[in-house]
Design a protein around this nucleic acid. Structure first.
Lengths: 218, 218
DNA sequence: CCCGACGCTGTGAGGGCGCTGAGGAAGGCG
DNA sequence: CGCCTTCCTCAGCGCCCTCACAGCGTCGGG
């Protein structure tokens, strides 16, 4: 785990550095606001310990800019101010945690661990087959970066097919999984919807295997 | 946003509930460890405020079990114990934050906001989508720098949608997270409020995905 | 080449889904 | 007590999706 400590008071900075290194972290130190901001932007750290009172740029301003640039690394803010509004302000600027000096080293460590545990947000999954892309969360389908409008049934059908590219999927399987199993639906409905899909995603993409089902070309 | 408060002291519990509801959260309360654990497991909450001293199961034990079962909802722990090791223990059991009683309500709110931000895939302090900006701390919404007056329900709805810009959010998900789960609400209420929001933030901003939900255009 | 089975598609009906205006219930405030 | 605000239900309406149907095309076997 790589940590960035931004602290101008050199004794505290090196004490932190040594202590955290002893815990097995790789620790870099920056002594000013601008230097810290720069390091945080380009350094690929897993978390940051950030003092509020800094030369050049305040800690508040550093987080605010980081967040504005869409850098989401966890930030633990350190400050001598223990007023409730100081704390609230720091958190509302985008810090993830706030500790007042003097602080307990044990607590700092525990809070850092909690922050690192949360880590970075997970990436959304996107299904991709050829130049087709389907994003289940956004319910969005593109073909060569051009958006395709699908109805809800069409979307469900394509979703199912894209999860088994290159496989033959039978009409009854589609009826079971894409359609409501409790409602009796004629197999012809599948043919109809395959037709709709072909018009939208390209005719050649969806082969008919006569007597067996359909296959989405990989 | 749905919150779970687990606190056995009924005066504090209801004070918290009222205060947080006034902020636009949907709040459920549990009074014992087992009840809290159960609610957290099945409730689909966005975060949890958890007292340590509880009948039945301690707060420590509640988080520990939740994490063991791979439930990752953000937990803010409340305790009367302010020893550094108590705090470290709470965090190391899996809590994300730790506040000692008596606590400042302002700080609790700011820490809760930080926690909710961290849980979401993107984590700005002021949510911005297109020319819309929403400041959770100040409870203000502007569109192209013009302030928009929203009722508390409208605000909560927009807040939830702006945390997932571009994603499709279903009506039932909205009912679960924006409305109070303990009250049975008709899905039509969502449609009504979407209508209100559209009049205020612009019709085209909030698409209907028929059969799936709504999507806030990025 | 013929024939039957299977698959495709244009048409149109029905119904589900979502939108809206009206209004009642509940709470805050003077 | 009455006014205002907010929340939410209800009922009506309109539209788009869904799917059955029927006629035609296509494929493959004999």
């Amino acid at each position: 785990m790589r940590l960035l400590v931004v602290e101008d008071e050199s004794r505290l900075a090196s004490a932190l550095q040594r202590g955290l290194q002893a815990e097995g972290f790789a620790v870099d130190v920056a002594a000013t606001g601008p230097a810290g901001l720069d390091a945080a932007r380009h350094g690929g750290y897993d978390a940051m310990v950030l003092d509020v009172m800094l030369p050049g740029l305040s800690g508040y301003e550093v987080v605010r800019r980081l967040r504005a640039e869409e850098h989401w690394l966890p930030v633990l803010m350190l400050s001598a101010k223990d007023g409730e509004y100081d704390q609230a302000d720091g958190l509302d600027c985008g810090a993830d945690d706030y500790l007042t000096k003097p602080f307990s080293y044990v607590v700092l460590l525990a809070r850092l661990r909690a922050l690192l545990r949360r880590g970075a947000p997970e990436r959304p999954t996107v299904l991709a087959v050829g130049d087709l892309r389907l994003d289940p969360a956004r319910r969005r389908v593109t073909r060569a970066d051009a958006e395709i409008a699908l109805t809800s049934r069409e979307f469900a059908l394509l979703d199912y097919l894209m999860r088994r590219p290159g496989e033959v999927v039978s009409k009854t399987e589609l009826l079971d999984h894409v359609w409501d199993a409790s409602v009796e639906t004629a197999p012809n409905a599948v043919e109809v919807y395959v037709g709709y899909l072909r018009r939208k995603i390209g005719r050649e993409r969806l082969e008919t295997i006569r007597g067996a089902g359909y296959r989405l070309a990989r």
